Amino acid sequence: MKNLAPTERILRDAAARREALAAQWLSAAQVSARLGSPPQRGGRRAAQFRRKGELLGVYVTRPTPSYRYPTWQFCSDGQPVEHLAEILRALRAFGPFQYESFGLRRSTGWGEVEWFLSPHALLNGSQPAEVLTVDPARVLGAVRIEFESGH
Protein backbone atom coordinates (compact mmCIF):
# COMPACT_ATOMS: atom_id res chain seq x y z
CA MET A 1 0.00 0.00 0.00
CA LYS A 2 1.35 3.42 -0.89
CA ASN A 3 2.00 6.03 1.77
CA LEU A 4 -1.06 8.14 2.43
CA ALA A 5 -0.99 11.88 2.93
CA PRO A 6 -1.91 12.89 6.50
CA THR A 7 -5.33 14.12 5.40
CA GLU A 8 -6.07 10.87 3.57
CA ARG A 9 -4.98 8.85 6.61
CA ILE A 10 -7.26 10.90 8.89
CA LEU A 11 -10.22 10.39 6.56
CA ARG A 12 -9.52 6.65 6.24
CA ASP A 13 -9.22 6.26 10.01
CA ALA A 14 -12.42 8.24 10.63
CA ALA A 15 -14.30 6.09 8.12
CA ALA A 16 -13.01 2.93 9.81
CA ARG A 17 -14.12 4.20 13.25
CA ARG A 18 -17.58 5.05 11.92
CA GLU A 19 -17.88 1.65 10.29
CA ALA A 20 -16.88 -0.13 13.53
CA LEU A 21 -19.29 1.98 15.57
CA ALA A 22 -22.22 1.42 13.20
CA ALA A 23 -21.58 -2.34 13.18
CA GLN A 24 -22.57 -2.38 16.88
CA TRP A 25 -25.91 -0.70 16.23
CA LEU A 26 -29.28 -2.06 15.17
CA SER A 27 -30.46 -2.65 11.62
CA ALA A 28 -33.78 -1.24 10.42
CA ALA A 29 -35.34 -4.72 10.63
CA GLN A 30 -34.18 -5.13 14.25
CA VAL A 31 -35.58 -1.72 15.19
CA SER A 32 -38.87 -2.41 13.42
CA ALA A 33 -39.22 -5.68 15.34
CA ARG A 34 -38.61 -3.82 18.63
CA LEU A 35 -41.31 -1.36 17.62
CA GLY A 36 -43.78 -4.22 17.14
CA SER A 37 -43.69 -4.53 13.36
CA PRO A 38 -44.16 -8.05 11.92
CA PRO A 39 -40.97 -9.61 10.43
CA GLN A 40 -42.38 -9.68 6.89
CA ARG A 41 -42.46 -5.85 6.87
CA GLY A 42 -38.66 -5.72 7.28
CA GLY A 43 -37.31 -2.34 8.27
CA ARG A 44 -40.20 -0.23 7.03
CA ARG A 45 -41.37 0.93 10.46
CA ALA A 46 -37.87 2.08 11.46
CA ALA A 47 -37.57 3.94 8.15
CA GLN A 48 -40.90 5.69 8.78
CA PHE A 49 -39.79 6.78 12.26
CA ARG A 50 -36.44 7.98 10.84
CA ARG A 51 -38.06 9.96 8.02
CA LYS A 52 -40.47 11.63 10.47
CA GLY A 53 -37.52 12.63 12.68
CA GLU A 54 -38.54 10.33 15.53
CA LEU A 55 -35.41 8.14 15.36
CA LEU A 56 -31.79 8.73 14.50
CA GLY A 57 -30.47 6.52 11.75
CA VAL A 58 -26.97 6.81 10.31
CA TYR A 59 -26.26 6.03 6.70
CA VAL A 60 -23.61 3.39 6.04
CA THR A 61 -22.35 1.98 2.77
CA ARG A 62 -20.86 -1.29 4.11
CA PRO A 63 -21.60 -4.12 3.98
CA THR A 64 -24.54 -2.78 1.93
CA PRO A 65 -26.01 0.72 1.80
CA SER A 66 -28.45 1.00 4.70
CA TYR A 67 -29.23 2.80 7.92
CA ARG A 68 -28.06 1.72 11.37
CA TYR A 69 -29.71 2.89 14.57
CA PRO A 70 -27.69 3.73 17.71
CA THR A 71 -28.85 1.62 20.64
CA TRP A 72 -28.65 4.48 23.15
CA GLN A 73 -31.79 6.11 21.71
CA PHE A 74 -34.02 3.27 22.91
CA CYS A 75 -35.58 2.42 26.27
CA SER A 76 -35.35 -1.12 27.59
CA ASP A 77 -38.80 -1.86 26.09
CA GLY A 78 -37.48 -1.05 22.59
CA GLN A 79 -39.32 2.26 22.23
CA PRO A 80 -37.51 5.55 21.52
CA VAL A 81 -36.57 7.50 24.65
CA GLU A 82 -38.83 10.34 25.70
CA HIS A 83 -38.10 13.70 24.01
CA LEU A 84 -35.95 12.10 21.26
CA ALA A 85 -37.96 13.65 18.42
CA GLU A 86 -37.73 17.09 20.08
CA ILE A 87 -33.97 16.72 20.57
CA LEU A 88 -33.46 15.68 16.95
CA ARG A 89 -35.68 18.52 15.73
CA ALA A 90 -33.63 21.09 17.67
CA LEU A 91 -30.32 19.64 16.46
CA ARG A 92 -31.48 19.69 12.87
CA ALA A 93 -33.17 23.08 12.95
CA PHE A 94 -30.42 25.00 14.71
CA GLY A 95 -27.37 22.75 14.66
CA PRO A 96 -24.36 22.92 12.38
CA PHE A 97 -25.89 21.04 9.48
CA GLN A 98 -25.56 22.27 5.94
CA TYR A 99 -28.41 23.52 3.80
CA GLU A 100 -28.58 21.97 0.38
CA SER A 101 -30.13 23.38 -2.76
CA PHE A 102 -33.78 24.41 -2.42
CA GLY A 103 -33.28 25.02 1.32
CA LEU A 104 -33.44 21.35 2.29
CA ARG A 105 -31.45 20.04 5.22
CA ARG A 106 -30.18 16.55 4.68
CA SER A 107 -28.17 14.51 7.08
CA THR A 108 -26.45 11.16 7.05
CA GLY A 109 -26.98 11.14 10.82
CA TRP A 110 -23.29 11.28 11.61
CA GLY A 111 -23.32 14.94 12.64
CA GLU A 112 -26.03 14.21 15.17
CA VAL A 113 -24.11 11.16 16.43
CA GLU A 114 -21.05 13.34 16.90
CA TRP A 115 -23.08 15.68 19.12
CA PHE A 116 -24.53 12.79 21.14
CA LEU A 117 -21.09 11.22 21.69
CA SER A 118 -19.19 14.40 22.62
CA PRO A 119 -18.75 15.44 26.25
CA HIS A 120 -21.11 18.32 27.01
CA ALA A 121 -20.53 21.08 29.57
CA LEU A 122 -24.26 21.41 30.31
CA LEU A 123 -24.30 17.70 31.24
CA ASN A 124 -21.30 17.96 33.59
CA GLY A 125 -18.97 16.61 30.93
CA SER A 126 -21.09 13.53 30.20
CA GLN A 127 -22.01 12.58 26.67
CA PRO A 128 -25.66 13.27 25.77
CA ALA A 129 -25.93 9.59 24.70
CA GLU A 130 -24.98 8.52 28.25
CA VAL A 131 -27.59 10.78 29.85
CA LEU A 132 -30.33 10.18 27.27
CA THR A 133 -31.85 7.00 28.74
CA VAL A 134 -31.71 8.15 32.36
CA ASP A 135 -32.68 11.83 31.98
CA PRO A 136 -33.88 12.70 28.47
CA ALA A 137 -35.39 15.99 29.65
CA ARG A 138 -31.92 17.12 30.74
CA VAL A 139 -30.52 16.34 27.27
CA LEU A 140 -33.43 18.25 25.71
CA GLY A 141 -32.60 21.21 27.94
CA ALA A 142 -28.94 21.09 26.90
CA VAL A 143 -29.72 21.00 23.18
CA ARG A 144 -32.18 23.87 23.55
CA ILE A 145 -29.71 26.03 25.46
CA GLU A 146 -26.91 25.26 23.00
CA PHE A 147 -28.80 25.68 19.75
CA GLU A 148 -32.07 27.54 20.33
CA SER A 149 -30.85 30.32 22.62
CA GLY A 150 -30.41 33.51 20.67
CA HIS A 151 -32.28 32.28 17.57
Rank of each mutant, 00 (worst) to 15 (best):
M1T: 15
K2D: 15
N3I: 09
N3L: 15
A5V: 12
P6T: 11
P6I: 07
T7Y: 15
R12V: 13
R12C: 09
R12F: 13
D13G: 11
R18Y: 09
A20D: 14
L21W: 04
A22G: 06
A22Q: 06
A23Q: 08
Q24N: 11
W25L: 07
L26T: 08
S27W: 09
A29K: 10
S32A: 15
S32D: 08
R34T: 04
L35N: 07
G36N: 06
G36A: 05
S37N: 07
S37R: 01
P39Y: 06
P39K: 06
P39S: 09
Q40F: 06
R41T: 06
G42N: 05
G42I: 04
G43T: 03
R44A: 06
R45N: 06
R45E: 10
R45V: 09
R45W: 06
A47E: 11
A47H: 04
A47Q: 09
R50D: 05
R51M: 08
R51N: 14
G53C: 09
E54A: 12
L55A: 03
Y59D: 12
V60N: 02
V60G: 03
V60S: 02
T61N: 14
P63Q: 14
T64Y: 12
P65R: 07
P70D: 05
T71Y: 02
W72A: 09
Q73E: 05
Q73D: 02
Q73T: 02
Q73G: 00
F74C: 10
C75N: 00
S76H: 08
D77E: 12
Q79H: 09
Q79N: 08
V81Y: 01
V81N: 00
V81H: 00
V81F: 00
E82G: 00
H83M: 08
L84M: 04
L84T: 00
L84D: 00
L84F: 01
E86C: 01
E86S: 13
I87M: 02
I87V: 12
L88H: 02
L88R: 00
L88P: 01
L91I: 10
L91S: 03
L91E: 01
A93G: 11
A93Q: 13
G95M: 13
Q98H: 07
E100F: 11
S101R: 14
L104A: 14
R105H: 08
R105W: 03
R106C: 13
T108K: 07
T108V: 05
T108D: 14
T108S: 15
G109R: 01
G109K: 02
G109D: 06
W110G: 01
W110I: 05
W110F: 03
V113W: 00
E114Q: 14
F116T: 09
L117R: 04
L117M: 14
P119I: 09
P119R: 13
L122R: 01
L123T: 13
L123Y: 10
N124P: 11
N124E: 15
G125V: 12
G125F: 11
S126R: 14
S126Q: 15
P128D: 15
P128V: 11
E130H: 09
V131K: 00
V131R: 03
V134H: 11
P136K: 01
A137V: 01
A137P: 00
A137C: 04
V139M: 03
G141T: 07
G141H: 13
A142T: 02
V143C: 05
I145Q: 08
E146P: 04
E146L: 12
F147D: 07
E148S: 08
S149H: 07
S149M: 10
G150R: 04
G150M: 03
H151M: 05
